[in-house]
Amino acid sequence: MSGATGNVAVVDRPPPAARGWPRARIVGTILVGLWALVGIGLVVYMIYAWNPELFARYAPSYLSGLWITLKLVGISIVIGAILSVPIAYARMSKNRLLNALSYGYVYFFRGTPLIAQTFLIYYGLGSFRPQLEAVGLWWFFRDAFNCGVFAFSLNTAAYQAEILRGAIQSVGRGQWEGASALGLSKMQTLWKVILPQALIVALRPYGNEIILMIKGSAIVAIITVYDLMGETRRAYSRSFDFQTYIWAALIYLSMVEILRNAIEWIEKAITVHLKR
């Protein structure tokens, strides 16, 4: 017996794999080196091109642009979330007509470019000015920001409806049956049993949708909204200084990264009970 325990101590493990310089490592090091060079080059460029006058002149407008971007995305996401509920309901209903209508809606908004939808609403609705004035809606569609919010809300509603539908359908039938066996009504089942499980599934796609909206919101710069992208374009067209675009890139990149990490953190926090 003692021999057996003694053997454990002298067991021969294979030697650790030699960490020489295989080809993959050489290539990897070169590539990381290239990225480091790009990073250093960027920093050097920013220091070299640093212009306090330019910064003082455009920093406030970048901030206001950032605020417009966040406002646009925030409002659109919320309106889209509200609109997505009836659309998702219609997509899942057995009524043929409701189903076809919601399918058409979702297909249209997911199948056409957001920029074309935005143009259709901003420029296109201008063709109906007399009619819009007659019903008293012209003041709303006259403003580019409102048109952006309108287009983005309709667009994100289609995507969010699909996310919601996918999440609800990912919850097994047994959950519905179990809840109805306990005597819960349909509404109660949805609120207390299905949605809490579905939202865990939906969290990541929702997060991606917000990120897509933040990136997509740059489009409104084309229809003369001075969001972050619009301010950047204005600053570039006045100063012809390329660092204006670099600033915008850094701001967008940090927004997306912060959001992505936040979602990962939330996901970790709300799936604690699923970890074993």
């Binding site: 990897g28 990225w35 919101s217 890139a249």
Partner: peptide, 29 residues
């Protein structure tokens, strides 16, 4: 997917940057 950390790092930097930038901004850049 390579076991070599430096290759993974280089690939991840690439995707992080170009998935995080708005397409329109990438185009202008």
């Amino acid at each position: 997917k390579s076991p070599e950390p430096s290759l993974r790092l280089a690939g991840n930097i690439y995707t992080t940057i170009f998935r995080g930038l708005p397409e329109l901004l990438t185009l202008f850049l």
